[in-house]
Design a protein around this nucleic acid. Structure first.
Length: 571
RNA sequence: GCCCUUGUAGUUCAAUGGAUAGAACAGGACUCUUCUAAGGUCUUGAUGUAGGUUCGAUUCCUACCGAGGGCACCA
């Protein structure tokens, strides 16, 4: 990448001037008209050199210009002592050719080559609804997986599903209360799963409101752990199968394919064994009949957590140890990334500290990436009210809204449902991925998800438009051809930055850099589109414009793909 | 009480320690005989408070104020 070359160039110039290079950065000027790159190295070195920054910048610029490579148009001093660097038109002509040539591969690199990365995300619970948190985890995890894969990492996706624990017992308690209503196989799967979700709500409310119910639910929990009650196990296994089948449909819609599925029930015994083993070694201790880990003994910012409860059952903590030990044994990743909501951040700090004492080499490669929660503009949606917006209902609602917009569009009726799904998923995913993953998302139920402006559909619309232009160019037999002497415009300059944006997004596990970038590119393209006739038989500039349009389309589609968003042909 | 995260236009979000803090939505004014108007053009408007570090702070540090989350047998 150019940026590395520039850095070397500047380092050499500094050395020739006998200046200590130190750590300096090369950035993009806020205003593109100033140049493609800028460095403030003169400003930071001025003090050491005991000269005024402007003079120093002049000296550095002069030195730089002595060995100016051909891909640079000019390097000049501006402002208080910035050195602005503008790349040459041949550079951009070449870069545009690279985009057209690499196509789908443009933006990928081998920065992460040799790294095997395991990404765990989504993590829904069978017998419970797929809620918005799972949607967020899925959107973010999928995008991070794609980003690091694009940089050459070998990526494995894992989904960890909680099929044991108190939440399951709550659902089963509800089922036992409504045994007569238990749906048959003839009922559509979505309705069967909705029944399970309703049973969970009932059980969950009862658990909090009634001490008797609480005791009953705890007893059910124990029975499931032991597998002792035949009737209970029948409903449990049936419900679990339905849930998992149903979830599979959601993953497909969202564009995720997992390489590994791990159920809590598969690793909980491992978790118990690990805790018991290290209980003897003194890492865990008994307290009030439970087995706990004293986090604060290792780090004052940590706290005590229960790994095995006083009934002898593993908590989420013990299972987590089982899971991560299995990851290490089965997959042996170089990077193990776990994506969950930030309400689990402190929990993970404690559990990972325990894990560090048990399997240090595995802990070293494990990191927890937390994302914010989705909150609602019109007050919180309490899960107890039963009228919560679930991940599924959200997709459905948005799909309906998109479908309505499609009425009267020049498009075959049979294609509309598919397009509505793509557009709806793009709207939801973009709204999650456009902002820093760590902060909460405010979901305004009245406005719902915008299809205008800074949105997923805006990006799709831009890509579709570019596609329509290319189709027209084909029809009129205008072949795209980059003009080597074309004046580089904001679009080409922006296009050429794509690989850098992707690399940064991957390294920082921050998809929003890509989302923001795509919106900026779309805005530039739409503006250009509005006052430029791209396809025009008589215009000698047309082939260049068509080629540029193709490059825009390639980058948009590639960028959307990195966000886990499909681009439709029409919309 | 302690810990974590977080405070930027009316609202929802951007801004690898750099130059004039960018968008979108909402409001106002325009814009389809032309490649998809889910578009484009113009327009009003912001860094919680007080210090500190720095040539330079929205960004780093400290305190305060506000918001969200977490802190033993849920996940």
């Amino acid at each position: 990448m150019v940026i590395q070359d520039l850095k070397l160039l500047i380092q050499k110039a500094l050395k020739n001037l006998s200046l200590e290079a130190g750590d300096f950065t090369i950035e993009h000027p806020a205003d593109m008209s100033r140049g493609d790159f800028a460095t403030s190295v003169a400003l930071s070195l001025a003090k050491q050199a005991k000269v005024n920054p402007r003079e120093l910048a002049d000296r550095i610029a002069t030195e730089l210009n002595l060995a100016k490579p051909s891909y640079i148009e000019k390097m000049e001093v501006a402002g208080a002592g910035f050195i602005n660097i503008t790349l040459s038109r041949t550079f951009f002509a070449h870069e545009m050719e690279v985009i057209l040539k690499r196509g789908k591969l443009y933006g990928s690199s081998n920065e992460w080559r040799g790294t095997k990365a395991l990404v765990e995300y989504t993590d829904p619970n069978p017998l419970k609804v797929f809620h918005i948190g799972h949607l967020m985890s899925n959107a973010i995890g999928e995008s991070i997986a794609r980003l690091i894969a694009s940089q050459g990492a070998k990526v494995r996706r894992m989904c960890y599903q909680g099929d044991v624990g108190l939440h399951i017992a709550k659902t089963l308690w509800g089922i036992m209360r409504r045994e007569g209503e238990f749906p048959s196989r003839r009922v559509p799967i979505a309705d069967r799963v909705a029944f399970l979700g309703a049973c969970y709500v009932q059980g969950s409310n009862a658990y909090e409101d009634s001490p008797e119910a609480k005791t009953e639910i705890e007893a059910i929990n124990k029975k499931i752990y032991e597998g002792s009650d035949r009737k209970l196990m029948k409903y449990y296994k049936l419900g679990r199968t339905w849930s998992l089948d149903h979830l599979e449909g959601i993953y497909k819609k969202l564009g995720t394919r997992f390489d590994y599925y791990v159920l809590e029930s598969e690793i909980m015994h491992d978790g118990v064994a690990i805790v018991n083993e290290y209980l003897e070694k003194g890492i865990f201790e008994k307290s009030d009949g439970a087995v706990v880990f004293r986090g604060e003994a290792h780090d004052p910012k940590l706290h005590t957590r229960v790994f095995i409860n006083s009934q002898g059952l593993p908590t989420y903590e013990a299972k987590e140890l089982g899971l991560n030990t299995r990851k290490w044994k089965r997959v042996r990743p170089d990077r193990s990334i776990i994506i969950t909501a930030n309400e689990q951040s402190d929990y993970f700090r404690v559990v990972l500290k325990a894990f560090e004492l048990i399997l240090p080499e595995a802990r070293k490669v494990t990191e927890h990436v937390s994302h914010g929660m989705m909150r609602f503009a019109d007050g919180k949606m309490g899960s107890r009210k039963g009228n919560i917006i679930t991940g599924e209902s959200m997709i459905e609602d948005v799909e309906k809204m998109v479908f309505e917009k499609l009425v009267g569009r020049d498009m075959p009726e049979k294609d509309k449902a598919g397009v509505a799904e793509i557009v709806a998923v793009s709207a939801i995913k973009y709204s999650i991925l456009k902002q820093t993953t760590s902060s909460d998302i405010i979901y305004d139920f009245d406005k719902s998800i915008s299809f205008e402006g800074d949105s997923g559909p805006y990006l799709l619309y831009t890509a579709v438009r570019a596609g329509a232009i290319l189709a027209k160019a084909d029809k009129e037999k205008i072949k795209g051809k980059i003009a080597p002497d074309a004046e580089p415009d904001a679009i080409s300059r922006t296009l050429a930055r794509f690989p850098e944006v992707v690399s940064r997004a991957a390294n920082e596990k921050a998809p929003h850099y890509v989302a923001t970038y795509l919106t900026e590119l779309s805005s530039l393209f739409n503006s250009w589109y509005a006052n430029t006739t791209i396809v025009s038989k008589d215009d000698p500039l047309s082939p260049h414009r068509v080629a540029l349009t193709r490059a825009v389309r390639i980058v948009l589609v590639n960028g959307l793909d990195l966000l886990g968003i499909k681009a439709p042909e029409r919309m």
